[in-house]
Design a protein around this nucleic acid. Structure first.
Lengths: 345, 345
DNA sequence: GTTTTTCGCTAAATCGTTTTAATGACTAAA
DNA sequence: TTTAGTCATTAAAACGATTTAGCGAAAAAC
C-alpha cells in the first residue's frame, strides 16, 4: 500500500523547502520569481509520483472547502432532481463538489442542515428556501457566504441572488389559453403555502379571474401530506364543485395527484374537465389524453444559478448588487385543454 | 461578528488544557477518569458559548470525514432519486452527510469521481457501478474503504457488499403473467449492456422463452442516446415485428420511450400490444390504460444499503465476509396486460 | 567602496483538532 | 521507608497544507 505522500515528502526528496513546492503547485511561481528550472523539476517530480495535495489540510488552512451546499425541497421531485443534476455537472466542471439535502419545506430541518453545512465550511449555498428561514440566511450572508436562491424568493433576505420564473404571467397565460378554448369555470388547485412562487402563481390566477370576469374556485392543499390524502382532498373538491369545466394544478405533484383523483371520479378529459399543470413531466406528455402544461426552462435556471454563485465565489470581497433573474416559461399545449372551441389548434 | 471559538479558547477560559476539553467532548471522560465536577463545568460552558468543533481540523487529524460518497447512474432517474433521498435521510440521522455524483455509466467519469471522493477522504462508498470500474473499486477496498454496491453487481470486486433485486425471477414472473394472459409473441427491449442487473433480466426472459416454448424477440438499445433516438429505435423495431403481441421493457426509461413509440404507431394497449415494464413509475399507474410493472422495494433497498455501510463504518478493522442481499420485487398488475384471456383477474 | 535592490528561496507560524506519553500527587502494598 | 499503583490532568507532537516575514548572495546604484 503506497502511503500517501505529503508535501513534506516531496520537499525532502527534492531537497528544497515545502514553501517552494507549495508556491509552485499553486501557480505562484512567477509571482515569487522561482526559477523556471526549479519549477519544471518540481512539476515533473510531482507528476511522476502522482502527488495530490490533501484537501482537508488545505481547507483547514485556507478556510475554503470547494464544496457547494445545495438545498432543494425534495430530491425525488423530478423538477429538483433535474436541476440538481445539471447544477452538479456544472459545479463539477469548475472544481466544486455538491453536498445536498432535502428540506421538505421544513424550517427546523432546514435550519439544522444550514448549521451542518456551515460547520463543514461549505463555500457557497444554493437554496430553494422554505418560509421562516430568513434570519438564518441573512446571518449567513452577513458572515460573508455567497447565497443564491432559486424557485422561490424571500423578500426579507438581502444580498442573495435569485433565479426564478415568472409564475404570475405563466399562470395568467394558461388561464387565457383555457378561456380562449371556451372554459369558464376554472379551478386553481394549489398549496396552502405563502412561498413566493406559489403566491405568484395564485396572483396570475386571480388577475385572470378579474380580467376575464369569471368565477373563482381555489382549493388549497396542505403540504407534507401523504399522497393518498392529497388525492382524497382533490377528489372531494372536484366532487363538490360540479360546475367546474377546467382545473389548473399549481405544481407537478399536485397535477399527478389531481389526475389520479380525476381518474377515480371517471371524469373525461378534456370533455368533462380541462386540465393544465404547472411544471412539465414525462407523464403529462404520455397521458391519454396528453396534458397541457407550463414547462420551466430547467437548463437555463441551472446555468444561471451556478453562474451567479461562481461569480460570487470568484470575487469574494467586492460585494456587487444582488441579481434577481426572472426567466419565462413555455406553455406546452396538449390535448387536455382541447374541449370547448376549435378542436384542432 | 462572533469569531468562531476554538477548543483552545475554551481551554484558556476555563484554565484547563485542551486535552481535557477534547476528552470530555468526545465522551472519553469516564475512560480518562476526569472528575464529574469538571466534566459538568466544561459541558455547561461549551453549551453556553455554543462552541462547535471544527470539522475540518478533526477530519485532518482523525482521517475521518463523516461523508459518504454516493454514485448513481443519474440522479434525475426517479429510481435513483428515490433511493438517494432515502439514503440521504438515513445517513443524516447517523451523523453522515452525502456527497453524490451521476456516473452516466461512463467509466472514465466514474474513475474521476472516485478519485475526487478519495481525495476528499470520503469515509464510505455507495455505488451503482458501471462496467469497467472493477480495478478501481478493488484498490479502494484494499485501501480499507467500505464499499457497498447496489442495483448491479461486479463479480470481480471482492469485499464489497451488495444489495440488489432478483431480476431474473422478476422478469420470469412477468413473462409467466403474460403467457397466462394468452400472449405468445413477447419481445424484450433492453440495453446493450453487460451490467449484471441487465443480464439477469435478460436471463429471466430467456428462461421463460425456453420453458414456455415461444419465440424470442430481443431488442438491445444503446445507452447514452438522446431520448428521441431511443424512441425511434423502438418504433422501428415494433414496426418491423408485426407479429408481436406484447413487450417487456427492461428499465423505466425504456418503458417511457416505449410508450411514446407505441403512441406514435397508434397501437392500442393491451389489444394490439400488451406492455409490462421493469421498475414502477407514477406514469405507469396513471397511463391509459395503466401499465403493469415490476416494482422495486425502494425503501428496503435503501435501508439495507445504508445499514450495511454503517455496519462496516462502525467496525472498521475487523473484516467480515461481504454480504450479498437479493430482495424480491412485486408484480403490479394493471390494465396493459389484460388482453387475451380472462378480462378480470 | 559602501549602501540599496533585486533575486531565489526558506524557516517557522498557523489553521483547530486528537492522541501519546508523561507528570506530580497521593494512596496502598511490601 | 521504599515501591508500586492509581488518579486527574496536561505538554507537546502530530495531521498536511498555506503564508508571512526574512535571509544571504549577487547585482545595481550612489
Amino acid at each position: 500500500m503506497k502511503k500517501k505522500l505529503s508535501i513534506v515528502d516531496i520537499a525532502k526528496q527534492l531537497e528544497i523547502s515545502t514553501t517552494t513546492v507549495s508556491f509552485i503547485l499553486n501557480g505562484r511561481a512567477k509571482e515569487k520569481r522561482i526559477s523556471d528550472e526549479l519549477v519544471e523539476r518540481v512539476l515533473k517530480f510531482v507528476e511522476e509520483v502522482g502527488y495530490k495535495p490533501n484537501v482537508l489540510a488545505r481547507s483547514l488552512r485556507t478556510g475554503k472547502s470547494n464544496i457547494i451546499g445545495l438545498l432543494v425541497e425534495n430530491i425525488a421531485n423530478p423538477f429538483f432532481a433535474n436541476i440538481a443534476r445539471r447544477i452538479e455537472e456544472n459545479a463539477y466542471k469548475n472544481g466544486y463538489k455538491i453536498i445536498y439535502s432535502s428540506t421538505e419545506n421544513d424550517t427546523d430541518k432546514t435550519r439544522e442542515i444550514l448549521r451542518i453545512f456551515r460547520e463543514r465550511h461549505v463555500d457557497g449555498y444554493i437554496i430553494a428556501p422554505p418560509e421562516g428561514i430568513e434570519e438564518e440566511l441573512t446571518s449567513l450572508i452577513k458572515s460573508g457566504a455567497p447565497v443564491v436562491m432559486f424557485d422561490r424568493f424571500l423578500h426579507q433576505v438581502a444580498g442573495a441572488d435569485y433565479v426564478g420564473i415568472d409564475g404570475a404571467n405563466s399562470i395568467y397565460n394558461g388561464m387565457k389559453h383555457l378561456v380562449d378554448r371556451g372554459y369558464r369555470h376554472i379551478a386553481f388547485v394549489t398549496l396552502d403555502s405563502l412561498q413566493s412562487q406559489m403566491q405568484e402563481r395564485l396572483q396570475g390566477y386571480e388577475r385572470a379571474i378579474g380580467e376575464f370576469d369569471i368565477n373563482e374556485y381555489i382549493k388549497e392543499i396542505a403540504y407534507n401530506q401523504a399522497e393518498e390524502s392529497i388525492v382524497r382532498h382533490i377528489t372531494s373538491f372536484l366532487k363538490r364543485k360540479k360546475e367546474l369545466d377546467a382545473v389548473i394544478f399549481a405544481t407537478n405533484y399536485l397535477g399527478i395527484s389531481g389526475l389520479k383523483a380525476i381518474k377515480s371520479l371517471e371524469l373525461r378529459i378534456p370533455d368533462d374537465l380541462g386540465v393544465l399543470v404547472f411544471d412539465d413531466h414525462d407523464l403529462f406528455e404520455l397521458h391519454s389524453p396528453s396534458i397541457t402544461s407550463i414547462g420551466q426552462p430547467l437548463q437555463d435556471i441551472s446555468e444561471k444559478v451556478i453562474a451567479l454563485l461562481l461569480e460570487k465565489l470568484n470575487s469574494s470581497p467586492h460585494i456587487r448588487e444582488p441579481e434577481y433573474l426572472t426567466l419565462s416559461t413555455a406553455l406546452v399545449i396538449r390535448d387536455s385543454t382541447m374541449a370547448k372551441s376549435g378542436s384542432k389548434s
